[in-house]
Computed example of a mutant assay.
Amino acid sequence: MAEVKLLGSWGSPFSRRVEAALKLKNVEYEFVDEDLQSKSALLLKSNPVHQKIPVLLHNDRPIAESQVILEYIDETWKEGFPILPKDPYERAQARFWARFIDEKCLPATWKALWGSEEPEKAVEEACELLKILENELKDKKFFAGETVGLVDIVANFIAFWLRAIQELVGVELLSKEKLPKLYNWSDEFCSVFQENLPPKDRLVAHFRGRLQSTTTTTTSS
């Protein structure tokens, strides 16, 4: 077994976060693409509580939950680019905004993209949250400054997945006109992590299938 193994899914922004962090630290790893409809015995054993990806196996010891894994990687491999700031206050701020993204932005954007009983309200709420995130970006290249950090990595869904899916479903949340700073940031992020993002055509095809199955009231994949 490799020293470092990642149990993930090719199209998951959460496992792609871990791949981005491993890239920043120049850590070699083995990637195991899990079938989430038929989870492996290794995944169920490694994450018995949530039974979800991603799971990082380091010398056979499992670490679950993407944000927890990112901090573990930063603390374990000191070489390469830092993921979290050294200053305690800045570290706390980075953790705050990372949680804001996962607890507020992602659920709201997902709801706006895939419809709700009040679609206009869902889009408005998602745009308001993205505006808050843009205000935090200020005039910086990345949330961490001149280089990427924890908040940038956690926001990968906004940088890549959001733009791909909104084109498919016809709901505009992130555009150069509405959120120019966040839009430019997404371009910068995708440029840095191009090798750690899923093929756009394959991703769009996956979500197109999901959209079609939803509109025909069948079970989505």
Rank of each mutant, 00 (worst) to 15 (best):
P107Q: 12
K141I: 07
Q67A: 03
A98H: 01
I73R: 05
C105G: 01
F142L: 01
L133H: 03
A112K: 12
E103G: 08
C105L: 09
K111I: 05
D139K: 06
E120Y: 06
I132S: 07
A98M: 02
Y72K: 06
K86F: 07
P88N: 12
W97T: 06
K86D: 14
E65V: 10
W97V: 00
L113N: 03
K131L: 11
P119E: 03
D102P: 02
D102F: 06
K78Q: 15
T76I: 02
K104I: 03
D74T: 03
E90V: 00
A92Y: 14
R99H: 15
P85W: 08
I83Y: 05
E125G: 06
I83W: 06
S66R: 02
E120I: 07
G115R: 09
K138A: 05
Q93K: 15
A122Y: 12
E128M: 10
L106M: 04
L137K: 06
D102K: 06
A98P: 00
E90F: 01
A94Q: 03
V68F: 04
T109E: 06
V123C: 02
F143D: 04
F81P: 00
E134W: 02
E125K: 12
K138H: 04
E120H: 12
W110Q: 15
E65W: 07
D87E: 15
A112G: 12
F96E: 04
L113A: 10
T109Q: 08
E134D: 09
I132R: 07
K86Q: 13
E124V: 08
L137I: 05
L84W: 10
V123N: 02
E120R: 14
W77S: 11
S116H: 10
A122H: 11
K131C: 05
Q93E: 12
L113H: 02
K111Y: 10
K121M: 08
W114F: 15
W114Y: 13
P88T: 11
L130V: 06
A108P: 06
F142A: 02
A126F: 07
K86M: 03
C127S: 14
L106A: 11
R95V: 09
T109F: 03
L130F: 03
E65F: 04
